[in-house]
Simulated scan of single mutants.
Amino acid sequence: MKSLQNLVFIIVMAASALANAQQDSLKLQREARALLREGNKLYNKQQFSDAAIAYRKALGKNSKYEKASYNYGNTLYQDKKYKEAVEQFKVTTETSKDKMAQAEAYHNIGNAMMEQKQYEQAVEAFKNSLRRNPNDDETRYNLAVAQKEAKKQQQNQKDNKDKNKNQKDQQKQNEEDKKNDQNKDKKGDDKDKKDDQQDQKNDDQKNQQKPNQDQKDKQNQQPKPQQGKMTPEQMKQLLESLNNEENKTQKKMNTEKSKGRKVKQEKDW
């Protein structure tokens, strides 16, 4: 009996706790709805920052409150916080079971991507919106604009890529030309240096030969004795010698005169 009483007590307590939890949940839901309405009023007055505060409070009361989450994304979009807005809209696309709500969230994701110039992502978002609501002409128009901008962006990226490639190629060519010029200058300098060294060597050889040549030239410049021409001293000596010979001859002739001439005798045949 006692065990039965304990079981009944537990059931009653659990039911009471559940009832209290449900009451708390309903209370939070009511508070969340009130905050949502407050946020909507502020949003309509274009007081987006204050509206965002109200929506965040509503989500604090009920984290799965889809309308508060979606509207909070709209305030972020209006404040040009496009990246944060996209993340908030994604919550709606992942949690909402309403295709129209999902279509609107994807539509807004596409608009936020357009603002960030992420046109390919915008195209995909608008396509997802049209898959859930094919009759939305505004989304279809936005899709056409996004496709046009995406194509233009792709072409610009291709042009920029080609331009960068050409610039890199030109820079590489300039570097190669500069390197070749430096090599040519170096070779020219080496050749000039080699020529200078050869010239110096030749000059050194000439300088070594120059004394011998100068000496030879000096010798060539010295006056050579001329054949057949006597010096004054030699002429004086020759004259004295001739005078002495002449005196001797004269003296001998005088002696022979004094003895008489010899008579030539005939031979006796």
Rank of each mutant, 00 (worst) to 15 (best):
92 T>W: 04
65 Y>E: 06
188 G>Y: 12
187 K>T: 05
86 V>T: 07
9 F>S: 11
166 N>P: 01
151 K>V: 12
175 E>Q: 13
70 Y>I: 02
259 K>Q: 10
63 S>K: 15
260 G>K: 08
154 Q>R: 15
106 Y>K: 10
228 G>W: 01
133 N>M: 00
16 S>G: 10
232 P>S: 04
65 Y>I: 03
119 Y>T: 02
243 N>W: 04
116 Q>T: 03
207 N>G: 02
250 Q>K: 15
24 D>C: 14
218 K>A: 07
28 L>P: 00
159 D>Y: 11
83 K>M: 00
260 G>M: 05
252 K>L: 13
113 M>F: 14
162 D>V: 15
5 Q>H: 07
187 K>F: 01
200 Q>M: 10
93 T>N: 03
209 Q>D: 08
230 M>I: 01
34 A>P: 02
196 D>N: 09
175 E>S: 11
185 D>G: 00
16 S>R: 06
207 N>S: 00
44 N>T: 04
24 D>V: 15
123 V>R: 02
177 D>E: 14
229 K>R: 10
264 K>R: 08
131 R>C: 06
220 N>E: 13
191 K>H: 10
43 Y>H: 14
122 A>E: 03
190 D>H: 06
32 A>I: 04
122 A>L: 05
164 N>C: 03
12 V>W: 08
161 K>M: 15
3 S>G: 09
246 E>A: 12
211 P>I: 01
210 K>Q: 09
53 I>R: 08
164 N>L: 14
205 Q>C: 03
266 E>A: 14
13 M>E: 03
182 Q>K: 10
4 L>G: 05
181 D>Y: 14
4 L>I: 02
69 S>C: 07
104 E>C: 09
99 K>G: 07
69 S>Y: 02
67 K>L: 14
156 N>W: 07
36 L>G: 00
222 Q>M: 08
208 Q>N: 09
5 Q>M: 11
240 E>W: 00
152 K>S: 14
83 K>H: 02
6 N>Y: 12
24 D>M: 15
3 S>R: 12
97 K>M: 08
238 L>T: 07
162 D>W: 13
2 K>G: 10
68 A>S: 07
125 A>S: 01
224 K>V: 03
268 D>L: 15
50 D>S: 13
151 K>C: 09
242 L>M: 11
